[in-house]
């Protein structure tokens, strides 16, 4: 019952994001700009933006599985499906790198944990598009465009910000757990440091899972910049193109997809948090 309520709220939030994006892209350029004191928007852009369609018509289309058409006349579903298929292997590889980061951080010696947390803090402070900038520099320097190096750099740049986020979290959580009563009692029984960390790993993983939506947001933000900068087609490139061209149907479909994905992550995170609440860590 509770799960159904939470799922309902997540769905409502996703549609709320859709409605907010719809309002921003259709209503704001028309009248609110003047009210807020901004300069007048370009008439041609506004004419392009304000299509003869209401929010309810859009929602009605959604319920029938119709996401509309792009400015080029292509069905949004086809564009979105193609882009997701192109990005999926990259995302899977990036997630594998993030998981490897968690394992590495959890196995790192205790003095290194503070350093990892600090270094990750800097990586999170740096704008997310800096990593693909460096990736592009390497690609151009080694004339490696359209080579396997491009794919490797894309995955590395994609994984770096979310990996920094989980590294900072994992370092903090592991340092805390190593001081917990459980770790102390296991140590007193003669468990090696490696054994202690192995025993603590599921709890660290569960606590990291409770912030899954943050990880997803980091990954999607990274995707938004990495693909267009490194010249790869996919979901991120499609999103930037949709925003740049004010492609209403495409933008709204992407916003809905993002919101559904992040809210699913939040549901999983809430479940993990609930599990943590009952644990003895």
């Amino acid at each position: 019952m509770r799960l159904a309520r939470e799922a309902g709220l997540a769905l409502a939030s996703a549609f709320g994001s859709y409605a907010l994006a719809f309002w921003l892209m259709q209503i704001l350029p028309d009248s609110a700009i003047a009210t807020l004191g901004f300069g007048a928007a370009d008439a041609e852009v506004r004419a392009g933006l304000i299509q003869d369609r209401s929010l309810w018509a859009g929602v009605g289309g959604l319920l029938q599985g119709d996401l509309g058409t792009t400015l080029d006349g292509t069905p949004v579903t086809a564009e979105l499906g193609g882009a997701l298929l192109a990005s999926l292997p990259r995302l899977a590889a990036a997630i594998a790198l993030v998981l490897a980061t968690i394992g590495t951080v959890c196995a790192a010696p205790r003095p290194a944990l503070a350093f990892i947390a600090r270094a990750s803090g800097f990586l999170l402070f740096v704008p997310p598009f800096v990593f693909p900038f460096f990736g592009l520099a390497l690609l151009l320097q080694f004339s490696a465009i359209d080579t396997p190096l491009q794919a490797v750099l894309t995955i590395a740049c994609l994984a770096l910000p979310p990996a920094a986020l989980v590294a900072a979290q994992a370092a903090g959580i592991m340092a805390r757990y190593l001081e917990s009563a459980f770790a102390i009692s296991v140590r007193a029984r003669g468990a090696s440091l490696a054994r202690q960390r192995w025993l603590l790993l599921p709890a660290v993983g569960l606590e990291l899972l409770s912030t899954l939506e943050k990880l997803l947001i980091g990954l999607l933000t990274s995707l938004l910049f990495v693909e267009p900068i490194l010249g790869q087609s996919g979901f991120g490139a499609l999103l930037l193109r949709a925003i740049r061209r004010s492609d209403l149907d495409l933008c709204l479909a992407i916003v809905l997809f993002l919101a559904l994905l992040v809210n699913t992550g939040r549901l999983v995170g809430n479940a993990a948090r609930e599990r943590l609440g009952g644990s003895t860590w």
Binding site: G16, L20, L24, L220, T221, C251, V255, A259, N263, R266
Partner: peptide
């Protein structure tokens, strides 16, 4: 939560 469901940069650019 409605605003938080979308990455900050996507909102800013939109």
């Amino acid at each position: 939560v409605v605003v938080e469901s979308i990455p900050v940069f996507v909102w800013i650019l939109i």
